[in-house]
Computed example of a mutant assay.
Amino acid sequence: MGGKVNKLLLPLDGKPVLTYVLQLMEISPLIKGWVLVVPPDQLNVFFHLAVEKRECKKLLKVVPGGVRRQDSVWAGLQELPGQTKVALIHDGARPLARTEDIAKVVEAARQWGAATLAVPAKDTIKEADAGDFVGQTLPREKIWLTQTPQAFSYQFLLEAYFWANKEGVMVTDDATLVEALGRKVKLVMGSYENIKITTPEDIIVAEALLKKRELTYMPRVGIGFDVHRLVVNRPLVLGGVIIPFDKGCEGHSDADVLLHAIIDALLGAAGAGDCGRHFPDTDYRYKDISSLILLKQTAQIIHNAGFSIENIDAVVVAQAPQLISYIPLMEENIALTLGIEKTLVNIKAKTTEGLGYCGRGEGIAAYATAFLHVRKQGCCFKGDEV
């Protein structure tokens, strides 16, 4: 942009431009790990921003880029795990991409092998001749302006880069490289708001779009539900409190049914998936883990997505034991873990008068609602894993 400061570090509504992309990578449950490729002479600066200041948990590595864009992408691709199915390439100068953009382009890549976000051209496109006169007018209805993220079969993209490096082929984006090998790239409808920060005027436009999003996405409400079977030889943990009882909830973690419902409600309100996506019961790291730790990590996800918690209301459904005396401690645990006032957390306990699996003492269920308020840019998401 003509200045000495890297454009990714320029302030956008009070935060560096790259911060919005870091948030996008972290909030999306589709993305399990990602690599940040940066200018070699600013490696420490970006490491501080992403790791020390923003505490990006999914970030695998910060690596130095190359002279050309494709050299930088190649450096990043080599750091991804070998079992990666889909590789997503995103430009750090596009801070307004959304998680639904990731979902759409990844879905298309899974179906077609290669996909890019793009938008139809609004203006008439002229091709210039050598003397800067109009050489020809291109048919606008066939012109699309490509954006990022772009998504590809990881193995196919690796093969394409091996070929490009061997043959000395130079391209301006990854879709062009794939096209050069004769592979079709699916165009996925993007958004005209997904602008690239290139000039000072782009910062002004991006800030206006961010403020529009704040006004558009004010209140967010999520609903959570969970149920666990009661079994012997397990402690009963509810709201982070060990309840004296002859049975406990069966589960991979500590099976805290109340906290799991609250986690689902919080993630649902943020449009960030659910408990199972972030903390799957197939992951040994979560074996017998305290759900207060999972709630703490959920709070970070909510914060990174730009939300603040306004209210949590939950009900535990159990025929036995009586829980009323433990509720104040549950509320205190939840509020302390989330970093909010205790008055914002309300827990209730109900029986079913002997009806159903809860009434028969076979299990315990919990329902929760969460109300979030948008602080900055929010994200919505649906998807699986990249």
Results as ranks from 00 to 15, higher is better:
T137Q: 09
Q78T: 10
I263W: 00
A208F: 03
A93F: 08
Q297C: 00
A93D: 11
I364F: 08
R360K: 15
E362H: 13
M170C: 08
A128N: 04
A261C: 11
P321S: 06
T199S: 14
G363R: 06
D313F: 09
I334S: 00
T343F: 13
K32R: 15
G251F: 01
P29K: 01
P219N: 08
F133I: 00
D226I: 00
Y192E: 15
A118T: 11
G113E: 04
N44L: 12
Q70M: 15
W112N: 13
K211P: 03
G82M: 13
L238H: 12
V62Q: 02
V237S: 00
Q150F: 04
Q155Y: 05
G240P: 04
M189I: 06
G33W: 00
A299Q: 06
F371M: 11
V316L: 01
Q42N: 09
F133R: 12
A299I: 08
L210E: 02
A368L: 00
Y326E: 10
K212L: 07
G363H: 05
K53L: 10
D254S: 15
T146M: 10
A320I: 04
E79H: 08
L187F: 13
A368M: 04
Q23C: 06
D256C: 12
L187W: 12
P64H: 04
L60R: 10
H48E: 13
V63L: 07
V62C: 02
F245I: 10
I327F: 12
V5I: 10
